[in-house]
């Protein structure tokens, strides 16, 4: 866990893993540059800026230009990490992400900071619960949703080494470090975090932690739940999804809209390959104001809410 900074509560802000990993990469490879929209602080890139002021390209509050500049830097042989609040990176600059990065297939690394409802009280303009649905149809764009500091570090290292466009969600919500059984993440390969036979819970990002707690809750009442870490949105681990349906019931959990994101991807896969009862846990639409934890509770993005969804899916088995 070298790249992470633990908080007093034993929890981690994945932005620390992001910035420390990026600095380590920049130290080793002069091609690594950062591109921001006045988001040095919110991306925790103050240290990067201090060490390499020339390689921290701050275009000001101009996200369309920011993404285009990223594509241009890649053209000039740099490895740009374009870092900005996910809501603006994927919303304001969506056409640049589509045309300049995904369709042009350029070597740009898009880092969506504080995604989901990370900016709780600031409201839906600053929430980024639509990003996964917006980006999922974009061919070429590798999309990663890390759940903890180790996975965030892995995602950043993968992105730097990979030749092509990548989008990574970088969460600010405090999370513990998970007990991973793999040495490194591999494209399109999920990690089964817990084995189970009655239901499979497919989750990623911050929600993976809550899914694991839900599995514990279910175990107390004798329900065996598998928990699968869907860290790769693209490429999608289709076989792991089909395999999960072998339990007879599937629940998806994401810090995102229930329309078009992880739930949509899993539903498409199951409809084509192995239909089973399925429930989706996520946000139904624009989210009201509130602290992040209040909003998770309010919409059932909790261990109890996930467990209830799992029981409902199980009850629908034929």
């Amino acid at each position: 866990m070298s790249a992470a900074t633990k908080t007093n509560a034993g929890l981690y802000d994945c932005r620390d893993a992001f910035s420390k990993t990026l600095e380590a990469l920049a130290e080793a490879d002069e091609r690594v540059v950062a591109v921001v929209n006045d988001s040095v602080g919110s991306s925790k890139l103050g240290g990067f800026k201090k060490r390499w002021p020339e390689r921290l390209v701050n275009v000001g509050i101009a996200e369309q230009n920011m993404v285009g500049v990223g594509a241009g830097l890649a053209n000039g042989g740099r490895i740009p990490f374009v870092s900005c609040a996910s809501c603006f990176l994927t919303g304001r600059a969506l056409e640049q992400v589509k045309a300049d990065v995904a369709y042009s297939n350029t070597n740009v690394k898009l880092c969506g900071q504080s995604p989901g409802i990370g900016y709780g009280e600031l409201g839906p303009t600053h929430h980024s619960i639509e990003d996964l649905a917006w980006l999922r149809p974009l061919a070429n764009l590798v999309t990663i949703v890390p759940s903890d500091p180790w996975e965030t570090e892995q995602a950043i290292r993968f992105a730097a080494a990979y030749e092509g466009p990548v989008f990574i969600r970088v969460s600010r919500y405090p999370v513990p470090a998970l007990d991973h059984k793999i040495d490194r993440i591999e494209p399109g390969k999920t990690e089964v975090m817990r084995e189970g036979t009655d239901v499979a819970i497919l989750a990623n990002g911050v929600m993976l932690h809550k899914a694991l707690r839900a599995a514990e809750v279910l175990a107390e009442s004798g329900v065996s739940a598998r928990v699968v870490n869907m860290v790769w949105m693209n490429p999608l681990d289709v076989e792991a999804i089909v395999d999960a349906a072998g339990t007879g019931a599937v629940v998806t959990v994401e810090e995102a809209s229930v329309r078009g994101g992880l739930g949509g991807a899993v539903a498409e896969t199951l409809a084509l390959r192995r239909p089973v009862p399925m429930e989706m846990v996520g946000f139904p639409g624009f989210v009201p104001t509130g602290t992040v934890d209040f909003l998770f509770d309010h919409f059932g993005l909790t261990a109890a809410g996930i467990a209830a969804a799992a029981r409902k899916a199980i009850s629908r088995k034929g």
Binding site: V33, R55, Q64, G68, G72, L73, N75, Q96, D100
Partner: peptide
């Protein structure tokens, strides 16, 4: 062809990035 264009207003931002890369690499 350097970048895929079509939607308008995309060329100049990419060109700016290329020019910044040129300065960074002293080309």
């Amino acid at each position: 062809i350097e970048t895929n264009t079509g939607p308008l207003g995309h060329g100049l931002p990419v060109a700016v990035g290329i020019a910044i890369a040129g300065k960074l690499t002293a080309k």
